[in-house]
Design a protein around this nucleic acid. Structure first.
Length: 841
RNA sequence: GCGGAAGUGGCGGAAUUGGCAGACGCGCUAGCCUCAGGAGCUAGUUCCCGCAAGGGAAUGAAGGUUCGAGUCCUUUCUUCCGCACCA
C-alpha cells in the first residue's frame, strides 16, 4: 500500500467535503431515510462509545444512500449543561469558551472518522438561534397549561447547588455527582407530562422496532395502577377528610388503621393537637430526611408513631387509628394509605411491630380465617368474608361494586394512578436556556412576547457556584420592564433543564436555519419520524420519554403529523476495557485518535462493529483491531492484483463456467443477501462483516483453484492472476459487490478500491449490489438421508426437485448409497424454502 | 421482591422458520516463503479414543415433544441489567 491509512482517510474526507457528498435537501421524488445518532455532549474528547455509536449509524446511512434513499444524517451538540459550568467555577474558563473549544475539537475527531454527516445542518443547543425555540415552545406550553409554576418540595443537590428532576435522583443521590440529595421548597416550573401519561403508556405497544428492554423500562417508569380513591373522615371532625389511594378496595373491611406519609399536609395540623407538638414534629421530620437518603443502604426498618387521631372507615363506620409511617411516600397517590395488614405485607409487618389489629377479609374459599396464626400477608384475590353486604363476592366483582357504592355515596371513586410525575424543569444554573418570563409586581407572571425572543443568555464573568441562580446577580438581565404595563419588573432567572434542549433537536435538523419558526412543518413532514435512532441505553427513560412527550405537544400544536418521533431504536452497548468502563480515573482509556493514527479510521470502525452485535457490551482488544486491519489489507491485495483487466461483471447464467466459478458466483450473491439483510433488517453488523470475510476467503480459494502454476505457492503475498474471460467475469462480479458492500463499514478503503476497480470515484453515489436469487440458489444442494432417524448418507440433488423425482433418485442412486437400495422415501423435509432432508424407510 | 435479557470451544461470538453446532475473527500449532519475522500464504485447532479411516460425547442442569432440538415445552441453577416499601 503506497498510502498511510491517514493519507487515505484525508484524501477521501477532503473529496467528500469538497463535493458536499452528504448534504441533502428535501427531494419529494425520492424516498427519504432519516438516520440519527444521539447528539453529543461536548465533553472535550470523543471516546470509543462515540466511535461505536456513530459507526453503527453511519453504516445504516451509507447503505441507505447507496440504495437510492435521500438520507438525512445530521449531527449536533447538546451544548448546555452542568459540567461546563462546574469547570467554570473550578478553573475560571467561561462555559461558552470551553464549550466552543470542545465542539471544535470533537468535530475534528468525528470528521477524521469519516462519518457521513450533513455538516451544513450542524447545530448547537447553546446557540441563541436554537434555544430561542425552546423559549418559544415553553410559552406555547404555558398558554396551553402544559407549563406551570408551583411551590414544591424539590430535590436539591448540595454539591451541584441545584434542583434535580426526580429522574436525576439515583438511589437517593445526584445522578451526576452522587451527593446525597436533600429537599427544599422552591417555586418551580413544571411540564405537565402527566397529561400524556396514559397515551405515552398505551402507545408503547405500537413501538414495534424498539428493544423490549426499553419498552419495559418505560412502562415501569410511567407505572399505571388502577384503583380507587376513598375519603376517610376524621373522627370528631367531619370537615377534615383523609383521602387514600388503593388498588385493593375489596380489602377495605380489613383496613384497621390509616397511614400518612411524613410529608402529608395533615401531619403538621395533627402535631398542633398533640400532647407534645415539638416531639411530634421532630419525629415526622426525622422520617422525612430518612425517606430521601436512607434507602441507599438497602431496606430501612419500618417505623411509625400514632398521631392520636382516628379516621372513620366509610364502609365499616368504624374509627381506626391514624399513624405516620416512614415507608409511605408523600409524592405517590395521595400520600396516605388505608392499611390492610392481612392482605399487604408492608402493613402486616407494621401491624405486628406495633400491635395493631389484623382482620382477614379475603380468603380463597370464602371461609373466614382467624388472624392470630398468620405469618405473612395474603395478597391474592379470592372471596370476601367479614365484609358486610359484600361477603361472599369474588374480589374483582366486589371492587367494581364498592367503587360504585363509594361514588354514589360521595366518599370515593375509581381512579388511575401513575408513578410518572410532572417534569420539573427549573434549574438554578447559568449555562442553560433562560426561561422567557417576567415577574411583574402588577401583572404577575408575564411571558416574554414572541417578537422579543430570544431572551439571550448574558455573558457573565464570575462563577461562584453559589446556591441561587447566577443570572439573579446580573442587574442588566434581571431588571426589565413589564411587556403588559411597561412598569419595572424582574426577569425569571432560572434556566431550563438541558433535557428540554434534547427533546426536539431531531425536528430542528429538518430545518436547522429557520429564523421564523422552530421548523417548517413541511420539512418535518418529509423527514420525520426518524427512521433509525442509535444511542446509549442510558437514555432509555428520560430522553426518550421526554422526546415522545414533546412530539405530542408539537402534534397538538398542529406542527407535526405523528406522535412517535423514532420508528426504530437501537441501543448500543458500552465499550469496556479490562471489564470496566473506560475512564481517566481508571487509566484504561483507549484514545480513538491513537487508533486512527495507527490503523486508520476504517480498521477502527470495522473492529467496533465486528467484535459483537451492536446491543452488546464489547471489550476493547488491541489484537482485535489488528484482525480488522488484516482483513482490510486482504481485500486491498485482492483488488490490487485482480483489478487489471476487469472491466465488467457477468451477465446471465452459468453456461460455460467451471464448478469453481459457479461456486464463487453463488457465494457472491449469497453474501449480498446476507449483508443486506444483516444491516437492514437485523442490524447485526458483526455477521454482515463476517459474511464479507467469507467472501474474501472464497475469492482467495478461487484463485488457488484457477491460478496458473501450483496452488498455494505464492510469495510475498502476491496472488497469481488467472486468466480467461470466466475469471474476469466471475471475480469482477465478486469484487464489485464486495467493495460496494464494504462502503458502509470501511468507506475510505472502499472508495479507493472502487476507484481502482471501476475506474471512477463516487462510491457514495454507487448503487448497492443487487441480489440475484437465481444465482445464489442455483445448482444443487446436499441433503442428508435418514434411515430410522439416523443420517446414513447424503444426496446431492437439484434445489427444486419434486417429491416424485426424489423418490426415484433415492432408489436410483444406489451406486452411491448401496445400503439404500430398495428402500422407499418416507418423508421429505423442506425448510427455509429448500430441501433439507430425506427420510428413507 | 417485581420486570427484562442471557448462559455455546482457550477468548469475542455464528447458527435467518426446528435441519451437518462452533461460521467469522482473535489466540495457538505446523509448514511454505524468508538473513529475519511481530509481514504474507497454506494447513490444523470443541472434548475423549484412534497412526489413520473412523467412533463416541457435547450448547448451565434435569425431563419432554419431534425423523431431527442451541432453537419449542416443563422444572431448575447461574449471571447481567432495569425498577424497587408505588399501597
Amino acid at each position: 500500500m503506497d498510502y498511510t491509512p491517514q493519507d487515505l482517510d484525508r484524501k477521501w474526507q477532503q473529496r467528500w467535503t469538497d463535493s458536499g457528498a452528504f448534504e441533502v435537501s428535501e427531494d419529494y421524488s425520492k424516498p427519504k431515510f432519516y438516520c440519527l445518532e444521539m447528539f453529543a455532549y461536548p465533553s472535550g474528547h470523543a471516546h470509543m462509545g462515540h466511535v461505536r455509536n456513530y459507526s453503527i449509524g453511519d453504516a445504516l446511512a451509507r447503505m441507505k444512500r447507496m440504495q437510492g434513499f435521500n438520507v438525512l444524517h445530521p449531527f449536533g451538540w447538546d451544548a448546555f449543561g452542568l459540567p461546563a459550568e462546574n469547570a467554570a467555577i473550578k478553573h475560571g474558563i467561561h462555559p461558552e469558551d470551553s464549550t466552543r473549544g470542545n465542539i471544535s475539537h470533537m468535530k475534528g475527531q468525528l470528521q477524521r472518522m469519516g462519518i457521513s454527516y450533513a455538516w451544513h445542518r450542524e447545530l448547537a443547543t447553546c446557540d441563541a438561534e436554537y434555544y430561542k425555540w425552546n423559549q418559544w415552545l415553553f410559552i406555547r406550553m404555558f398558554e396551553r397549561g402544559l407549563a406551570y409554576r408551583k411551590r414544591s418540595s424539590v430535590n436539591w443537590c448540595p454539591s451541584c447547588t441545584t434542583v434535580l428532576a426526580n429522574e436525576q435522583v439515583v438511589d437517593g443521590g445526584c445522578w451526576r455527582c452522587h451527593s446525597m440529595v436533600e429537599t427544599r421548597d422552591l417555586e418551580q416550573w413544571f411540564f405537565r407530562i402527566t397529561e400524556y401519561a396514559d397515551e405515552l403508556l398505551q402507545a408503547i405497544d405500537g413501538l414495534k422496532a424498539w428493544p423490549d428492554k426499553v419498552l419495559t423500562m418505560q412502562r415501569n417508569w410511567i407505572g399505571r395502577s388502577e384503583g380507587a380513591r376513598v375519603r376517610f373522615a376524621l373522627d370528631g371532625d367531619a370537615t377534615t377528610q383523609i383521602e387514600v389511594f388503593t388498588t385493593r378496595i375489596d380489602t377495605i373491611f380489613g383496613s384497621t388503621f390509616v397511614l400518612l406519609a411524613p410529608e402529608h399536609p395533615l401531619v403538621s395540623s395533627f402535631a398542633n393537637r398533640a400532647a407534645d407538638p415539638a416531639g411530634f414534629r421532630q419525629q415526622a421530620q426525622a422520617f422525612r430526611l430518612q425517606d430521601k437518603a436512607a434507602r441507599m443502604s438497602g431496606e430501612i426498618e419500618k417505623q411509625g408513631f400514632d398521631t392520636g387521631q382516628r379516621a372513620i372507615n366509610p364502609f365499616t363506620g368504624q374509627a381506626v387509628p391514624i399513624w405516620v409511617a416512614n415507608f409511605v411516600l408523600g409524592d405517590y397517590g395521595t400520600g396516605a394509605v388505608m392499611a390492610v395488614p392481612a392482605h399487604d405485607q408492608r402493613d402486616f409487618e407494621f401491624a405486628r411491630k406495633f400491635g395493631l389489629p389484623i382482620r382477614v377479609v379475603v380468603t380463597p374459599d370464602g371461609k373466614p380465617v382467624a388472624s392470630e396464626g398468620l405469618t405473612e400477608a395474603a395478597d391474592a384475590y379470592g372471596m370476601l368474608v367479614e365484609s358486610g353486604e359484600f361477603s361472599g363476592e369474588p374480589s374483582a366483582e366486589a371492587q367494581a361494586r364498592m367503587i360504585a357504592v363509594a361514588k354514589a355515596s360521595g366518599f370515593g371513586e375509581g381512579t388511575v394512578q401513575f408513578r410518572l410525575k410532572d417534569w420539573g424543569i427549573s434549574r438554578q444554573r447559568y449555562w442553560g436556556t433562560p426561561i422567557p418570563f417576567i415577574h411583574c409586581p402588577k401583572d404577575g407572571l408575564v411571558p416574554v412576547p414572541d417578537d422579543q425572543l430570544p431572551v439571550e443568555l448574558p455573558r457573565i464573568t464570575e462563577f461562584t457556584g453559589r446556591g441561587d441562580s447566577p443570572l439573579s446577580h446580573v442587574p442588566e438581565f434581571v431588571n426589565t420592564t413589564c411587556p403588559k404595563c411597561g412598569g419595572a419588573a424582574r426577569r425569571e432567572t432560572d434556566t431550563m433543564d438541558t433535557f428540554v434542549d434534547s427533546s426536539w433537536y431531531f425536528y430542528r435538523f429538518a430545518d436547522p436555519r429557520n429564523a421564523q419558526q422552530a421548523f417548517n412543518p413541511e420539512a418535518v413532514k418529509y423527514w420525520l419520524p426518524v427512521d433509525f435512532y442509535v444511542g446509549g441505553v442510558e437514555h432509555a427513560i428520560l430522553h426518550l420519554i421526554y422526546s415522545r412527550f414533546f412530539a405530542r405537544v408539537f402534534r397538538d400544536l398542529g406542527m407535526v403529523d405523528h406522535a412517535e418521533p423514532f420508528t426504530h431504536l437501537l441501543t448500543q452497548g458500552m465499550v469496556l476495557k479490562d471489564g470496566a468502563v473506560m475512564s481517566k480515573s481508571k487509566g484504561n482509556v483507549v484514545d480513538p485518535d491513537d487508533m486512527m493514527a495507527k490503523y486508520g479510521a476504517d480498521a477502527l470502525r470495522i473492529y467496533v462493529m465486528f467484535v459483537a452485535p451492536p446491543e452488546k457490551e464489547i471489550e476493547w482488544s488491541d489484537a482485535g483491531i489488528e484482525g480488522s486491519w488484516r482483513f482490510l489489507a486482504r481485500v486491498w491485495r485482492l483488488v490490487d492484483h485482480w483489478c487489471d483487466g476487469i472491466t465488467g461483471t457477468p451477465q446471465g447464467g452459468f453456461e460455460g463456467i467451471s464448478p469453481e466459478g459457479r461456486r464463487l458466483r453463488r457465494k457472491t450473491h449469497d453474501t449480498i443477501r446476507r449483508v443486506t439483510v444483516d444491516i437492514e433488517e437485523r442490524q447485526q453488523l458483526n455477521t454482515a462483516i463476517s459474511a464479507m470475510m467469507e467472501l474474501v476467503n472464497e475469492i482467495y480459494a478461487f484463485s488457488d483453484a484457477t491460478a496458473t502454476g501450483a496452488p498455494g505457492r505464492r510469495a510475498e503475498g502476491t496472488i497469481v492472476p488467472a486468466e480467461g474471460p470466466e475469471v474476469v467475469a466471475v471475480v469482477g462480479e465478486a469484487l464489485s459487490a464486495l467493495v460496494r458492500m464494504l462502503a458502509p463499514f470501511a468507506p475510505h478503503t472502499a472508495e479507493e478500491l472502487w476507484e481502482r476497480l471501476a475506474g471512477r470515484d463516487g462510491l457514495t453515489t454507487a448503487s448497492w449490489p443487487v441480489f440475484d436469487a437465481d444465482v445464489a440458489r442455483a445448482d444443487e444442494v446436499v441433503v442428508p438421508v435418514q434411515v430410522n432417524g439416523k443420517v446414513r448418507g447424503r444426496l446431492t440433488v437439484p434445489v427444486d426437485i419434486t417429491d416424485a423425482d426424489l423418490e426415484a433418485l433415492a432408489l436410483a442412486d444406489a451406486a452411491v448409497l448401496p445400503h439404500l437400495a430398495g428402500k422407499t422415501v418416507k418423508k421429505v423435509v423442506v425448510a427455509r424454502g429448500r430441501l433439507v432432508s430425506v427420510v428413507v424407510g
